[in-house]
Amino acid sequence: IRSKPGKGYTAFNGVEFEGTFHVNTVTDDDYVGFVFGYQDSSSFYVVMWKQTGQTYWQDTPFRATAQPGLQLKAVKSHTGPGERLRNAMWHTGDTPGEVTLMWKDPRNVGWKDKTSYRWHLSHRPHVGYIRVQLYESTTLVADSGVVMDTSMRGGRLGVFCFSQENIIWSNLGYRCNDTIPDDYYYLYKKQMNLRWGD
């Protein structure tokens, strides 16, 4: 597999995770991002950003097509590291038994060469709360909103690349935090009102 998460050794429950990445080249257009809730190489969340659309150059075991734009995926692989998981991670969409696409930036905008981006992740695995925000300087360029998922109940943090060269990661930081954000309660109340018809 040409995708490689670099991860720390500490497993987290509720956490705020942030960092900056900068792609220091104009000759490549692949995936850059970070992982969280990492339990093992078959079970983790990944936020990955492709610069341009591209079909993976090996169509075995299936044809995988990447779209530009920031993506949040849950990896729960039955096969583990290998060709099937490789193509499933490249592919923008669900691959049953491998990867679920939980959110994608609808603008379909790729990252820019030689530009620094700062991410901020809030993860509260005990209630399934995930929110990813991405900034270029002080401008918010992508926001997942509240995504609810309980596939991984916490885990390790790290950085991620898939076939992309010359990535510089800097100013990585984390803070343990089990406080449930206000927007979770807003979403929960809205869902309950829809369920009960109020």
Rank of each mutant, 00 (worst) to 15 (best):
M102P: 00
K4F: 09
W196L: 10
F12P: 09
G8E: 14
F62V: 10
F44H: 13
G173R: 13
K50S: 12
P68R: 11
Y45H: 07
G197Q: 09
R153L: 10
I167C: 08
S77Q: 12
Y117M: 02
M89F: 07
C176P: 01
Y174R: 12
Y31R: 14
T95L: 00
L187A: 10
W169A: 06
F162A: 02
F34L: 10
S137R: 10
L187V: 14
K7F: 07
G197F: 05
L134R: 02
Y174D: 11
W49N: 09
A66K: 09
G69F: 05
T10F: 09
T115I: 01
L72W: 09
Y31D: 13
Q58T: 13
R131K: 14
A142F: 00
E165R: 14
Q54P: 00
R195M: 07
V109W: 00
I168K: 11
A142Y: 01
P96H: 03
P106G: 04
F12H: 15
H91D: 10
N87T: 04
W111L: 03
G197V: 07
D94T: 03
M192K: 11
S116P: 12
H123L: 03
S77F: 10
D198L: 10
I167A: 03
Y129A: 11
P81S: 05
A64R: 10
R107F: 01
Y185F: 15
K190I: 11
W119H: 07
D105H: 07
W103Y: 06
P96K: 02
Q191L: 14
Q71V: 03
L121H: 05
I168R: 15
S151L: 06
F36A: 12
P96S: 10
P96V: 02
A88M: 04
N13W: 01
L70V: 15
T79N: 12
R118K: 13
K190C: 01
G128L: 08
G173W: 00
Q133M: 08
V141A: 08
R124L: 03
F17S: 09
P81G: 04
Q51S: 09
L85G: 05
W49K: 12
L194N: 14
K4T: 08
R131E: 12
E165Y: 04
Y174M: 11
M148Q: 03
S116R: 14
N171M: 01
H91I: 00
W111H: 06
F162I: 01
T10R: 14
W196I: 07
R131D: 08
R156I: 00
R2H: 09
F21Y: 15
D149E: 03
N13Q: 13
D30V: 01
G8I: 05
T52S: 09
R63H: 05
D40Y: 07
G14H: 04
K114I: 00
L72H: 06
F162W: 09
I130V: 03
E18G: 14
P5F: 07
K7P: 02
